[in-house]
Design a protein around this nucleic acid. Structure first.
Length: 431
RNA sequence: UCCGCGGUAGCUCAGUAGGUAGAGCGAGUGGCUGUUAACCACUAUGUCGGCGGUUCAAAUCCGUCCCGCGGAGCCA
């Protein structure tokens, strides 16, 4: 059996392909069927004179997404819709004949309808490509860390305490009926790991019970979180920039044509991507925004401001030194101005906004303990974390990168839910 | 949780001086052509989200509930 992605290696040879009926058309003496096998799509030509009337009718009556096996010769044909190659069928056998119509047709569906049929929507060329790119992104990220001597140290998913906002924790019951939570981030455990391995990362699903209903939020998403001992804020920004550039270049290497053909992605910015990115402090960014919008801003940026910033340059923007009061307890204060912390957000251009958030961590025992108590967190739950500051504590930094947000930017997606196979959002846990 | 929009054929939608419904796609039938989301003609399909109210009469007006979508806050 031949996979369609390799079919051009079999020109003028006989192949057997198996796949799903993607589309079919008929002329006076030919039946055309496009076959999709998961690795590609190819046009199969049935010359009516080579089959009985019963066979021709059987082929014509196949509903979309029925399964068929075909033997035939691969021929070069300029008019063929895929790869300028088509298969001239000599034998076929029907492996599964659908009796109900496939709910997804070639056009005109709302997002709600398609999400309801997400299990079938995955078969469309667009969704197929997006998930192929997601796979390429994840492989590139892992490759970057392997090449740069990071060690994969998985963080646990069940945790006894929060590491961010307690209000967005998914609560469940442990074996002994004690309350446990689904992790919102693996970071705290990476801080432990990097003191053992120097450079580590984790990659896994994280869970946030946010009641957000926007296209940039999911309640379950995948995050990659590197952590480095002896690295300060500047160093971690370099790593983040390198990681993004490396990943984008790997994806383009493999999928550049499909990105522009199938997703109609304008690729100029992705192809021009180089470090360093645009750097600005929170205060700078705020001034720029205030000038642009002609009004005063207070506190953290909201999503609209982030989007504005994100449109201002043709490469990602690194915003550093946010006010301490809007950031979590573990971030290191800036010695030159303690109102701010040594943190960074990286905003993707083209209106996509935040894809990375990171910081230098507080390594001083007393300061960290004070922050934990001030945040109203339970000292007992964080005793192991505080312990790290008693045994050989060092400057260290890390960040979290949202895989779906990166995929969404690279693919130019409107909504994050297309960037994950089965999105979990406030309104949808099925399929 | 708050704000806004919506629920009419399998799908996407149109449908206000209130008079029990239409188009395109899909499906079926016929025709035409190496077709490309093929094309042309014809045919069938509806508890107009649920419940209650106003009215001679409700998809349309009122109340209420359910569901979906977008945004805010928060974040990756």
């Amino acid at each position: 059996m031949t996979e369609i992605c390799y079919i051009t290696e079999y020109i003028n040879k006989e192949v057997e392909i198996r796949g799903w009926v993607y589309n079919k058309r008929e002329t006076s003496n030919i039946v055309f069927i496009n076959i999709r096998d998961g690795t590609g799509v190819i046009q199969v030509l049935f010359l009516k004179e080579r089959f009985t009337t019963i066979q021709v009718n059987q082929i014509l009556s196949l509903l979309v997404e029925s399964v068929i096996s075909i033997k035939g010769f691969v021929r070069i044909e300029k008019k063929a819709p895929y790869k300028e190659v088509e298969v001239h069928a000599s034998l076929y056998s029907i492996l599964f004949e659908n009796t109900v119509e496939f709910p997804i047709s070639k056009k005109d569906h709302s997002d709600g309808f398609l999400m309801k049929y997400r299990h079938l929507w995955l078969r469309s060329s667009r969704q197929h490509l997006i998930l192929k790119i997601r796979s390429a992104v994840i492989n590139a990220v892992r490759e970057y860390f392997e090449v740069n001597n990071f060690t994969l140290v998985d963080s646990p998913i069940f945790t006894a305490s929060s590491c961010e906002e307690t209000s967005t924790l998914f609560n469940t019951k442990w074996v002994n009926n004690e309350s446990v939570y689904l992790s919102q981030s693996g970071q705290l455990y990476q801080e432990a790991a990097c003191m053992a391995f120097r450079k580590t990362y984790c990659f896994g699903p994280v869970f946030r019970a946010e009641k957000s209903k926007t296209r940039r939020h999911l309640n379950e998403f995948w995050m990659v979180e590197p952590e480095m001992a002896f690295a300060d804020l500047d160093r971690i920004i370099e790593v983040a920039e390198e990681l993004i550039c490396f990943t984008v270049s790997k994806v383009l290497e493999k999928h550049e044509k499909d990105l522009s053909d199938i997703l109609e992605r304008e690729l100029t910015i992705l192809k021009m991507l180089r470090r360093p990115f645009v750097r600005m402090t929170y205060v700078d960014a705020k001034h720029k925004l205030e000038l642009l919008m002609n009004k005063q801003l207070e506190g953290d940026f909201g999503a609209p401001q982030e989007t504005e910033l994100s449109f201002m340059h043709d490469r990602p923007i690194v915003v550093t030194h946010y006010p301490a009061q809007v950031k979590p307890f573990y971030m290191k204060r800036d010695e030159s101005d303690v109102r701010f912390v040594k943190c960074m957000d990286i905003l993707a251009p083209e209106g996509y906004g935040e894809i990375i958030g990171g910081s230098q961590r507080e390594e001083d025992y007393e300061s960290l303990k004070k922050n934990i108590l001030n945040t109203g967190l339970n000292e007992y739950d964080f005793s192991w974390y505080l312990d790290l500051r008693q045994y050989g504590t060092v400057v260290h930094s890390g960040f979290g990168m949202g895989i779906e947000r990166l995929v969404a930017w690279i693919c130019g997606l409107h909504h994050l839910r297309e960037a994950i196979p089965f999105a979990r959002t406030i309104e949808r846990i099925r399929p």
